[in-house]
């Protein structure tokens, strides 16, 4: 820089810069916060409600239960069905008398021998699976938008 440049620089340094509106910073930072919410949203690895391992255990337990009931025979099964299950079996017999096949009756008998706790677990598992599927679909849909 020569002398004339330096003199001119001295003059220019005395000039005050233009200022944006007083709420400029707030406006910019609120836009950036919104941007950050989209841009830097932490990517969470998708975790199913029931893990694959849990599904295998549930499946094996259910299978073991079915095998046990089938092997142990219908006599013991009828003995082990108190309360609403005997009512259910009674209604199955009624249905059978109206023309249901014996296969259906056998199936219902087996179903009737399942302990209520096991049925409750099965129902809850199915409900969770349904919810899990729904939430997965919802997540995929929203990520496309």
């Amino acid at each position: 820089m020569n002398k004339l440049d330096k003199q001119f620089e001295g003059m220019m340094k005395e000039v005050r810069l233009d200022s944006p509106s007083p709420d400029f910073m707030i406006k910019v930072m609120s836009r950036i916060q919104a941007e950050a919410a989209v841009q830097h949203r932490p990517v969470q690895a998708y975790q199913p409600v029931i893990s694959r391992k849990a599904w295998i255990i549930i499946g094996l337990a259910f299978l073991a239960l079915l095998i046990y009931i089938t092997v142990s025979g219908s006599d013991t099964a009828t003995e082990s069905t108190p309360g609403i299950w005997s009512t259910l079996l009674g209604s199955v017999e009624k249905i059978n008398s109206t023309g249901m096949t014996s296969v259906w009756q056998k199936g219902m008998n087996i179903f009737g021998t399942i302990p209520p706790v096991a049925l409750l677990i099965l129902t809850a598992s199915m409900a969770l699976w349904t919810l899990d599927t729904y939430l997965t679909r919802l997540r995929h849909h929203s990520s496309k938008v």
Binding site: S19, P20, F24, M29
Partner: peptide
């Protein structure tokens, strides 16, 4: 590193010249 608020320092420092 994720500290969004740190950007306000840069806005504060350069807002006048960027606007000018």
């Amino acid at each position: 590193k994720g500290d969004v608020q740190a950007f306000s320092f840069l806005v504060e420092k350069y807002q006048k010249l960027v606007y000018t």
